[in-house]
Design a protein around this nucleic acid. Structure first.
Length: 586
RNA sequence: GGGGCUGUGGUGUAGCUGGCCUAACACAUCUGCCUGUCACGCAGAGGAUCGCGGGUUCGAAUCCCGUCGGCCCCGCCA
């Protein structure tokens, strides 16, 4: 027997036709005589009818059918009686009258109803993921994921990019995320690492002359999970030779537009806004700003420099900044809301949060009584305040003040629903610092990675005292407050690479030991090159309007990095450990 | 490593300021009836010792401590 049609394609054009359908029993409506069953497959649902006057035997067997039984039915397509059409179904104009039924497999009562309406705890869904994935919405997410991957492959292939696979078993290159390690059986005491990204391999491919490379590839990072972070995730990894930063940015803009055109109903702009890191931090308090929140952080240090309010004026004197965020409209925020914000802020590293609300009766605020008339006037003018606006103040080190107000900007913007969640915003963040000081390590560390090229205008600063001023040729692609991609123009000069290692306090021996193959490759005629890696799961998540990448990954891990279905990771046999020369200490 | 939320029949929830809880409701399940339903309907039935362990108390789903699982966030994620 062969299935002639799927459950999503029959309509009145096939009326009268004999068909064979296969699928799962979605719902059963047993009227005693007539039995209706919605047969479901990944293409849709079709109503099948068992009529004792048409096929007595089939109708008798149909009495046994329960939810999620796997069925094969042979029957005739017929138009539903007048007024009995189901407008909610694409196949709702017809039904299949069954002449012959085969129960291909039975099913115990499922742990939850296979339906998008059913509200089931994620814990249960993940344990029975194979059932969860039967739900139409989950099937659509994976279909969307496939289409997105296809669009990416087609676009890049048309642009003459070549897909090349790189090793999954590779060497550990600390610095960066924690590695997943794989013990070597043949080399006692030695380990492979799973790649955090194919970064070095793609650079080597450039040295090999594959001037346009891409790969849709799994990457592994043994770090704590988030809604948008899994220990194994997929990147669209891209690298090209003889390109400038703008070449990469434009190519990626084309890629993203193509993806949107093929899989989404949303429209996005032709080219994406570019902001530099400093502005992103100053205006949005984040290097991955969600610009859909229509508020910008303002610097009001100048206004409070001479204020009688000592907390602010002294902060300004000490070289700190006073940042202000106008929250509008804020009529729904009461004193207790501001007070709870204040405690929230302390968890983020700020010493305090000032607030003031402008009501029709004047200022409502625990601190505004300390402001001079000049201060108030300055604020009104700079922030263009009107009744029912509130202002949040943080006086702190620049980075802290920005980040804290950035966090509040986002959480209040969402809470007060001041923007349409369905809109899409894409932008580039450029000119990141190349290095940042790590107090923990007592040295400078790479903001991106040690192979990122310094901004060519800043090369002279590389010898200066304040290395945090050196900008990089790195770039991040940001969508709705998520970093969906990041990359850079790389260093292709061995001496410059050596210099960066020195700056990072990575000794020559250490560099040779860890990245010798790269340094060697850079000597053998490395072309100028650069690239990007897109977070494929995040991209699909945003295209699907989901809030967790788990929803667009077939078999994801929990926040404690386990799989509830397979119960991985698991203990292994003593014999396996022995072969791998591994002993567990408890 | 830290903070927050959460765990009650198969599923989702209510109860959680301790005693009327002999744990309620909806869906699902089972039985019977039903020839036009599509969240089918009607009548009935079964099913949870409240994640687990300990403590307080005359009495614990309810309070306390510990522990395990899930989710969100900070740190971490070059």
């Amino acid at each position: 027997m062969k299935r002639t049609h799927t459950c999503g394609e029959l309509n009145k054009k096939q009326v009268g036709k004999k068909v064979i359908l296969m699928g799962w029993c979605d719902v059963r409506r047993d009227h005693g005589g007539l039995i209706f069953i919605d047969l479901r497959d990944r293409w849709g649902k079709t109503q099948i009818v068992f009529d004792p006057s048409v096929a007595q035997a089939a109708q008798g067997l149909a009495k046994e059918i329960r939810s999620e039984f796997v069925l094969e039915v042979e029957g005739k397509v017929r138009k539903r009686p007048q007024g009995m059409e189901n407008k909610k179904l694409p196949t709702g104009e017809i039904e299949v009258v069954v002449q012959c039924l085969k129960i291909l497999n039975r099913c115990p009562t499922p742990p939850f109803e296979i339906s998008d309406q059913a509200d089931v705890a994620e814990e249960v869904r993940l344990k029975y993921r194979f059932l969860d994935l039967r739900r139409p919405s989950m099937q659509n997410y994976l279909i969307l994921r496939h289409k997105t991957a296809q669009a990416v492959r087609n676009y890049l292939s048309k642009q003459n990019f070549l897909e090349v696979e790189t090793p999954v078993l590779t060497r550990s290159t600390p610095e960066g995320a924690r590695d997943y390690l794989v013990p070597s059986r043949v080399q006692p005491g030695k380990f492979f690492a799973l790649p955090q990204s194919p970064q070095l391999f793609k650079q080597l491919l450039m040295v090999s002359g594959f001037d346009k490379y891409f790969q849709i590839v799994k990457c592994f990072r043994d770090e704590d999970l988030r809604a948008d972070r899994q220990p194994e995730f997929t990147q669209v990894d891209i690298e090209a030779s003889f390109v400038s930063r703008d070449d990469i940015l434009e190519m990626v803009e084309g890629l993203i537009q193509t993806v949107f055109k093929e899989v989404s109903v949303k429209n996005i702009k032709k080219s994406f806004d570019r902001l530099n890191y400093k502005d992103a931090m100053n205006w949005y308090g984040s290097d991955k700003p969600d610009r859909r929140v229509p508020w910008k952080i303002e610097d009001v240090s100048e206004i409070f420099k001479n204020s009688p309010f000592k907390i602010f004026s002294q902060a300004a004197e000490q070289g700190k900044v006073i940042k202000a965020l106008k929250v509008t409209p804020a009529q729904d925020l009461a004193r207790k809301d501001f007070e709870s914000l204040e405690s929230e802020v302390k968890g983020l590293g700020a010493k305090g949060l000032g607030w003031a609300k402008l009501t029709s009766e004047g200022w409502q605020s625990p601190i505004a009584k300390n402001f001079s008339d000049q201060d108030k006037e300055g604020l009104l003018k700079k922030l263009k305040l009107k009744a029912n606006d509130a202002v949040l103040f943080v006086a702190d080190e620049w980075a802290v003040a920005c980040q804290v107000l950035g966090a509040l900007r986002l959480s209040l913007g969402k809470k007060l629903k001041v923007f349409d969640e369905k809109t899409t915003d894409l932008c580039w963040v450029l000119d990141f610092p190349l290095f940042e000081w790590s107090a923990a390590d007592n040295r400078y560390v790479s903001v991106h990675h040690p192979f990122t090229s310094p901004h060519l205008e800043d090369l002279s600063l590389m010898n200066g005292s304040d290395l945090s001023k050196v900008r990089s040729l790195g770039y991040d692609l940001v969508m709705n407050g998520y970093e969906i991609g990041g990359g850079s123009i790389r260093i292709h000069d061995r001496d410059l690479q050596q210099k960066v290692f020195e700056t990072l306090k990575i000794s020559a021996e250490e560099a040779t030991r860890r990245f010798g193959f790269l340094l060697s490759a850079l000597e053998y005629g490395a072309p100028p090159h650069g690239g990007i890696a897109l977070g494929f799961d995040r991209l699909v998540m945003l295209l699907a309007n989901c809030s967790s990448i788990r929803d667009v990954i077939a078999f994801p891990k929990t926040t404690s990095a386990t799989c509830l279905m397979t119960e991985a990771p698991s203990e292994v046999d003593e014999a396996q450990l022995k072969e791998l020369h591994i002993q567990i200490k408890s």
